[in-house]
Design a protein around this nucleic acid. Structure first.
Lengths: 107, 107
DNA sequence: TCCATGTATTCGTGTACGCGAATACATGGA
DNA sequence: TCCATGTATTCGCGTACACGAATACATGGA
C-alpha cells in the first residue's frame, strides 16, 4: 500500500458526479422524476435518438442513479432515489446564486 | 431556433457537475472547506504536484465553486459556497445507501 | 534591478467520452 | 417458429480531459 488518499468511496463519489455531468443525463433524470417511462417514450419526449437514451440510461444504471424494470418487451426506468432530484435542485440554486452574486460565470 | 431543450441553465448545471466528477477535485473541495489554503500548501497536504492542483483549481474557479484571493505572492483559495459541501455530503449519503441496499454498485 | 517564492501555463501523450448509423438482442404474440 | 416491438450494443470518428515535465509569469523584498 502506498498513500491511501483517493479512497474507494471518493472514486465512487466522483463516478456519480461524473454521471451527472452531462446535460442530456440531467434532463433524463428530471424526466424520470416527473414520471417513470420506458426508453422509447423517453426518447420521444426528450427528442433524442433511442440508442442515445439507452446508452445514457446504462451509465445512470451503472452508477445506481436509475433502476430498470422489465414489462413485456419494454423496460421501464425510474429514479433509484428521489433525493437525487433534491441534490440537483440544490445545485441549481447554488448555481443561480453564483450567477446572481458574482458577475462572471463562464462556460 | 430549433427545439429549446438543453437550455443554458442545464448546460451550466452539467458543467458544474462535471467539475465535481473528478476524485482529486472532490478532495480539494473538502480540504478547502476544512480550511482555506494556498496552492502549494494544498498540494503538500493532498500529496499532489503543484501544477496539478493549480489546474484543478482553475477548473473549479471557472465553475464558480471556489474563489481565489491574492495574499502577497501566494493565492489563497476558499470555497465559494459552503452549500457545495452539503451537496457533496448528501450525494455521499445517497451513494452509501445505494451500496447498502442494492448489492451491486460497480465502478 | 535581481532574486526568491509561489502560481499558472504550455506541450505532448494516452485515455475516456459522446455521437450517428447500423445492427444485434430480448420478449411476447400469432 | 416467425414476426413485431422495444432495447442494447458495436463501430468509427472527432473531441475533450488528465497527466508529468518543463517553463513562464507574478509578486514582493533586498
Amino acid at each position: 500500500m502506498e498513500s491511501p488518499t483517493l479512497d474507494e468511496l471518493t472514486l465512487l463519489h466522483a463516478n456519480v458526479c461524473q454521471a451527472l455531468g452531462d446535460p442530456k443525463r440531467i434532463l433524463i433524470l428530471y424526466a424520470l422524476h416527473e414520471q417513470p417511462r420506458y426508453v422509447s417514450l423517453l426518447a420521444d419526449d426528450l427528442d433524442m435518438p433511442q440508442p442515445t437514451v439507452s446508452r445514457h440510461l446504462a451509465i445512470l444504471r451503472q452508477r445506481a442513479l436509475v433502476r430498470a424494470e422489465r414489462e413485456g418487451t419494454a423496460v421501464i426506468y425510474h429514479l433509484a432515489d428521489s433525493r437525487i432530484i433534491d441534490i440537483l435542485n440544490n445545485m441549481r440554486q447554488v448555481l443561480r446564486d453564483a450567477i446572481a452574486h458574482q458577475t462572471t460565470v463562464l462556460s
